[in-house]
Design a protein around this nucleic acid. Sequence first.
DNA 1: GCCGTTTTCGGCCCGACTGTTTTCAGTCG
Length: 574
Amino acid sequence: MSDLNKKDIIDLLERIAVYLEIKGENAFRVSAYRKAAQALERDERSMAEIDDPSKLSGIGKGTAGIINDFLSTGTTALLDELEEEIPSGLLPLLKLPGLGGKKIGKLYQELGVEDAASLKHACEVNEVQNLAGFGKKTEEKILTAVNEMGKRPDRLALPHVTAAVDDLYEFLTGIPDIVRFELAGSFRRGRETVKDLDFILSTKAPEKVGETLVNHPRVTEVIGHGDTKVSVELTFGETIVPVDFRMVEDESFATMLHHFTGSKDHNVLMRQIAKARGESISEYGVKDEASGDVRHFETETDFFAHFDLPWIPPEVREGKHEIDDAPETEGLITLADMQGDLHMHTTWSDGAQSIDDMIDACRKKKYSFMAITDHSKYLQVANGLSVERLKRQHEEIRETRGKLTDIQVFTGIEMDILPDGSLDYDDDVLSTIDFVIASIHSSFSQDEETMMKRMEAACRNPHVAMIAHPTGRLIGRRDGYAVNLDRLIDLAVETNTILEINANPNRLDLSASWAEKAQERGALISINTDAHRYEMLEHLPYGVRNARRGWLRKDTVVNTWSGERLLDHLWKNR
DNA sequence: GCCGTTTTCGGCCCGACTGTTTTCAGTCG
């Protein structure tokens, strides 16, 4: 038996699809392998728990046989043949813009291109432009793309696109010919990273608006400029942000918004539903196939209602179970449910504002509770609190909160879990604090066993209420430490310890999929900003969107509780 | 390759844009 897990199987199926694509195989056969991979991904179970893959919709006898080959031998005859036949150096070329399987197949068969280097050479000696279906412009574009290969990240973390988002909102608002506009795409779905920004705008003067768009002062490259679509690249400092604008008549705005919010897989599901009813969905509306009439909708809600569905939130439109479980989406947590923020810093450690400033900022946000959680003494670089300073700070907090009637201010601490698994304060200190957070800021490279001993020590301490940013990842920059999240979730459930969704857009930690698993197994979650300045309190929506992507219900998230219920929870089990 | 409350064969989501053509294939989302 090989020890392949589900992720490996999915990768192997996708590998087959890519090879077949380059081979010029029937597109439906290619997509059959991709669909099989998706079917596995959609299923919650592990490979060991799936006794017969062909029972999954999208996997037939053929692919099931291949999956079983993989499981028993680690490979399969089809993949072996493909690897024999096609150079693996061609696979990364599919990522180049403008190159798909067909063109790569042609480059391979007619010019002997085998990888990026030989493709570059073929362009330089002008062999590419003479191929049928290619030309001078195509050759130039390919050469540029090959030279750019690997220089730019595939996807941008959210903090890298916020400047562009803010700028474009202002810019589009100032264009009088635009009736309404909205940001769609993976940004609207709350993904952790985005490839580009997709703006939908309705206008009666697409030509004029398109001209205005390509002349935006930040535009450094026009990728495409058609009647209804404009693709450009905007440059903000070091970051190049690709942006697509789609222009449409206002009557099609809702369907266009739905279409370009995606995901692609979600759209496929919706179109299959339409097809079964004798209708077809496009970005322009819903067509009745019998009469040819096209129906338009004022809002997305109307569009979904036409298919007897409630409005499905963008965050869960991933082509998974959002159609089947559509009624459940009405119970998902919303930003309006959030009653407070339980993780923030002040000038007492490494924050930029005083306790009073942070309290004022939270009162302005109409929170009913908050916790001040500065760093503990181990974290000297962050001016962590000695026991003596901690006591003074908490005295100050108690004094201040006594005068307030509109917000409950909890005493708190973000306490380090030390490399040896001990905690930074003794129990007699911790026993005086309302909200004790435990987190790891040191010895990131320890092995899983050592790391989990640290986590377990924190969870088992009766005073620890929450584990902050459980994996320590920084999106696009640093993988998390070696945490066994399955085990951590079990520990959290067993010891009644809350797990955090850190709302900082660089973290989003836990991720949506782990938060979903945590909820399924009965863990409690808290969404917090970890603000070090009051502007960072505004990060909360990122955390809520992330939680919605994980299908979190309001009651799973302790920030939605009343202050009394939360305090009771924090104190009753010590 | 998968699938079937009209089908075991003939479909498989739909449309824009580009560059190559001179009516369209390939790519992309």
